[in-house]
């Protein structure tokens, strides 16, 4: 059985799918009619964010339990890596000491907290398949804008509610961490924010394939399973043979787990850090543009059957 780490706890909560009907006050925000149209357009996405946030906070107990449970297997991972380091007789493997390795594996949880988008691609494909996508076409609402507001609210709720258990777990594991310099923190924050955009736009692109193939669930499983390894969630990419490490470091998947973690650990600094962040920003823009193009092209093929 694949580990549930491929499916973050958000996916288990009942509100992980887009509702069939969008609340009326979102589409017609109660806003001064004289306000500029740009403000009115933006305001409705703020409303979507707020409504979704309230909805998500209803299940905060579930979040807390789920987050704690998620870290229990981390105990066996710590033991496994301790055994690996002890057996190898080496202090460093692939440039990571034992402490750094455990810190890395914990930090990938933070990376995935930002980059994973459970149910996003499947939800888009389902809307296309059963015809409910037309709810975005009949109302003055952009689908990608709606989804990004919805996901941002999910993430805000998840990060808020899981902050407490995460703080406890990271405090217990504090001996594994080196405190980063003050210049690293903004770079880490930027890498996480971009990880969110890369994760969102990449999953949206996968979901858009539903315009061309009716059933993409199986494809999703393959992509997500593969992503778990090639994003560096299982182990740092530096441990792989040089050829594979170079190959995976040139792909965008590393930005969903590996890259933010090594930024925090200051394994990438100076010009290399700036170049890494620029590349991450490039991939974020690339996937956003690709999602837009796929959506525009897909709509031309869309038949709006069912729904």
């Amino acid at each position: 059985m694949k580990p549930l780490e491929t499916v973050p706890p958000e996916a288990n909560s009942p509100a992980s799918s887009v509702p069939d009907s969008i609340p009326r006050d979102i589409v017609r925000p109660n806003l001064d009619p004289n306000a500029p149209s740009g403000v009115r357009k933006f305001y409705k996405y703020i409303k979507i964010f707020r409504v979704t946030l309230v909805e998500r906070m209803t299940y905060r107990g579930d979040f807390l339990l789920g987050t704690f449970l998620r870290f229990v297997p981390m105990a066996t991972t710590v033991l496994l890596w301790k055994s690996i380091y002890d057996s190898s007789g080496r202090k460093s493997l692939g440039g990571f000491t034992y402490r750094q390795m455990i810190a890395y594996l914990l930090l990938t949880h933070i990376s995935r907290m930002f980059s994973s988008m459970p149910g996003l691609a499947g939800g888009i494909a389902r809307d296309i398949r059963d015809g409910t996508l037309k709810k975005y076409l009949l109302q003055p609402l952009d689908m990608i804008g709606y989804l990004i507001s919805y996901r941002a609210a999910h993430k805000a709720a998840y990060i808020t509610t899981s902050a407490f258990p995460y703080a406890i777990i990271f405090w217990i594991c504090r001996s594994f961490f080196d405190v980063p310099s003050w210049t690293t923190i903004p770079a880490y924050a930027v890498s996480l924010a971009l990880a969110f955009v890369v994760g969102f736009a990449f999953e949206a692109c996968v979901g858009m394939i539903g315009f061309w193939f009716l059933e993409v669930t199986s494809l999703l499983y393959i992509v997500m399973t593969l992503n778990f390894f090639i994003s560096g969630h299982m182990l740092p990419l530096d441990l792989l043979p040089r050829f594979w490490a170079n190959l995976l470091e040139s792909l965008p998947f590393q930005y969903m787990a590996y890259f933010p973690a090594i930024v925090f650990q200051e394994k990438i600094q100076g010009a290399a850090l700036v170049r890494g962040l620029a590349l991450e920003a490039f991939w974020a823009c690339f996937f956003v543009v690709l999602a837009r193009v796929l959506y525009a092209r897909g709509l031309r093929r869309y038949g709006a059957y069912g729904g």
Binding site: K2, S87, T225, L226, L235
Partner: peptide, 23 residues
């Protein structure tokens, strides 16, 4: 998908055993 997951597991342990002879 199951086959892919098995390959990922084997790749993980192959990588580990490239660094050590026993675990």
């Amino acid at each position: 998908v199951e086959l892919l997951w098995l390959f990922i597991l084997l790749a993980f342990y192959k990588t580990v055993f490239m660094k050590t002879s026993t675990v």
